[in-house]
């Protein structure tokens, strides 16, 4: 039953993150959604995933704060309206309604007796064995993806030498 409380907290936080205009509140709500989702995973018997979700959510929220400060998103007076209007609002509401309905209609129901930690076969040892024996290639691909994202991010965000020289010349003029 407690997973319904966590589910309600997750949805409430996600609603706040979607529709709030204050970016501080958006970041806080995103963090709360991640923490509440981790709580749901705990009640469903996915302890490893819950801990990973909590760590990742906290680091993601911290990085959002850092980048929001850097880009001026947390300034008291916003430069432009954060939200859109008209057709975009209708499209967003359509997306927010149609996807859950499609999931609800198209998915099989999860029996209530299965919603909870299983009595056996759910320890970290069996998860680790499964990871190494059956999904080792996926783990390697994930590691390579993270490495490429790190290196690629550095390459994309590097300072442009030509642009820096041009700006310096403009400043001197």
């Amino acid at each position: 039953m407690i997973h319904w409380l966590f589910a309600a907290a997750t949805v409430a936080a996600a609603l706040t993150a979607t529709f709030a205009s204050n970016f501080r509140l958006v970041i806080l709500a995103l963090w709360a959604a991640g923490l509440a989702a981790g709580g749901m995973y705990i009640t469903l018997g996915a302890e490893l995933l819950a801990i990973v979700q909590w760590i990742v959510s906290t680091l993601v929220a911290l990085s959002f704060v850092f980048f929001a400060v850097m880009f001026g998103e947390l300034s008291p007076v916003p430069k432009q309206p954060v939200r859109r209007s008209g057709l975009f609002v209708i499209g967003a509401l359509f997306a927010a309604v149609v996807l859950p309905c499609a999931v609800w209609i198209g998915s099989p129901a999860v029996p209530n007796e299965l919603l909870g930690p299983p009595s056996r076969g759910n320890d970290l040892a069996s998860l680790g064995t499964l990871l190494v024996e059956e999904h080792f290639l996926s783990l390697e691909i994930l590691a390579l993806t993270l490495f490429l994202a790190l290196v690629g991010g550095g390459v994309i965000a590097r300072p442009d030498k030509l642009l820096s020289v041009a700006r310096r010349k403009d400043r001197h003029k």
Binding site: H3, W4, A7, T10, V11, A14, L15, A17, T18, F19, F23, V26, I27, L30, A33, A37, M40, F64, F67, A68, F71, E73, Q80, P81, V82, R83, R84, F88, V89, G91, A92, L93, A95, A96, V97, V98, L99, P100, C101, A102, V103, W104, S107, A109, V110, L115
Partner: peptide, 28 residues
């Protein structure tokens, strides 16, 4: 019924992508 929660999260994420103007908002 509980799968509706994950659908709602996904739908709200899509709505957030459509509604926000800035790249950080889209990343949220």
């Amino acid at each position: 019924m509980i799968l509706l929660v994950s659908g709602l999260l996904g739908g709200l994420g899509l709505a957030c992508i459509v509604l926000r103007r800035t790249l950080l908002g889209i990343l949220v």
